[in-house]
């Protein structure tokens, strides 16, 4: 186990700043997720931690040792690639044995380790097969087994579930989390999928354009977004933003409900809206609307759980409301979180 740190890590590809001064530190045994839109530099950051890419400036520290100048093999890390990168000319058993062989481990010990990690991932019956004879889910497990077998200090995973179909992805996510909690090895996990990030991570680093916009637990990044990017990147649908010259007001669609749903005692902001569109999602109903009155002219979304059966129709005016404690204020110029204020 080890703590991974990045210190002012910057990476240029020609003129492109792929990673722009990232400072991060994991905790011991933590599952840290790097979350951000495609092209924001997640993979590049992970590859620099792995040693596959050299930072333009800054340092990588693993377990208290500066490893920036060390090759990947000297960093005690294991990595699962998005493509899994299984060696096509070797059987599953040989694939898993590969890192052990590279260490020059004794044969009997190798056998024991292979068996242990294969049984942990339930792939004992596949050991004699070649990668091309495996399904996507099986390949993913083999890749995990190969990473696990060496008992590394750090796991690095780059979108390991993105090649699986939706159903398999849910169960694989579940297994992955159990697996990480069981081995309790520091893990850095890259994804662009917020559901994966929220479900798996102890903490999430939300990235955009090469920078970490916020680092926090899933609850923190969701309920206390540091800026408008984080606020609108997380959540489905994303946070509503009412932008005025003096402030930006953010609120989650699930807190923005018809006025009559709230009781009398709550401190509420009432917003009359014109409903433009309705969407039924089974468990929820999305109401797309445009505000009217004092804060008029903004598009907002309300997410009604199906047990709220208020009748609504497109074109109709309806009074919506939101509790004042759910207000999130942002600076209209920088987008950063601002202190609560009067409207």
């Amino acid at each position: 186990m080890a703590i991974v740190e990045t210190r002012d890590v910057l990476k240029m590809f020609g003129d492109v700043k792929a990673v722009d001064g990232v400072n991060l530190a994991t905790n011991e045994g933590e599952f840290l997720v790097l979350l951000g839109p495609s092209g924001c530099g997640k993979t590049t950051l992970l590859r620099m931690i792995a040693g596959l890419e050299q930072p333009s400036s800054g340092d990588i520290v693993i377990g208290g040792q500066v490893v920036t100048a060390l090759p990947p093999r000297a960093r005690k890390i294991a990595m699962v690639f998005q493509s899994y990168a299984l060696y096509p000319h070797m059987t599953v058993a040989k694939n898993i044995a590969f890192p052990l062989k590279a260490q020059g481990m004794a044969r009997e010990e190798q056998g024991k380790r292979i068996e242990k990690s294969a049984s942990m991932l339930g792939i004992g019956h596949l050991l004699h097969r070649k990668p091309r004879e495996l399904s996507g889910g099986e390949r993913q497990r083999v890749a995990l087994a190969r990473a696990l077998v060496r008992e590394p200090a750090v796991f690095l995973l780059d979108e390991p579930l993105s090649n699986l179909d939706a159903k398999l992805r849910t169960s694989a996510r579940d297994e992955l989390q159990q697996f990480q909690r069981q081995v309790a090895t520091t893990t850095i996990y890259v994804t662009h999928d917020q559901v994966e990030a929220m479900g798996l991570g102890h903490r999430i680093a939300v990235m955009d354009a090469g920078r970490v916009r916020q680092l926090g637990t899933p609850q923190e990044v969701y309920h206390n977004p540091a800026d408008t990017f984080v606020a609108t990147f997380l959540g489905s649908p994303p946070m509503n933003l009412i932008e005025t010259p003096e402030y930006s007001l953010g609120f989650r669609p699930e807190n923005f409900l018809p006025r009559e749903v709230y009781g009398k005692g709550d401190a509420l902001l009432s917003l009359p809206c014109r409903v433009t569109r309705l969407e039924y999602l089974g468990s929820d109903r999305l109401v797309y609307a445009v505000t009217e009155g004092k804060l008029g002219g903004h598009r907002v979304i309300s997410k009604l759980p199906s047990n709220i059966s208020v009748f609504m129709q497109p074109g109709e005016r309806h009074e919506f409301a939101l509790p004042e404690k759910e207000f999130k204020f942002f600076d209209p110029h920088t987008g950063l979180r601002a202190a609560p204020r009067a409207l």
Binding site: A50, R73, A78, P88, Q103, R150
Partner: peptide
């Protein structure tokens, strides 16, 4: 795929080792 060599380098080989043990057999 480049990933294969990189995987081999992470799994404990040098670039040359990855070339000999992974690239050449493939």
């Amino acid at each position: 795929p480049k990933d294969l060599e990189e995987a081999a380098m992470i799994d404990g080989l040098s670039r040359f080792g990855a070339f000999v043990k992974v690239v050449i057999p493939i």
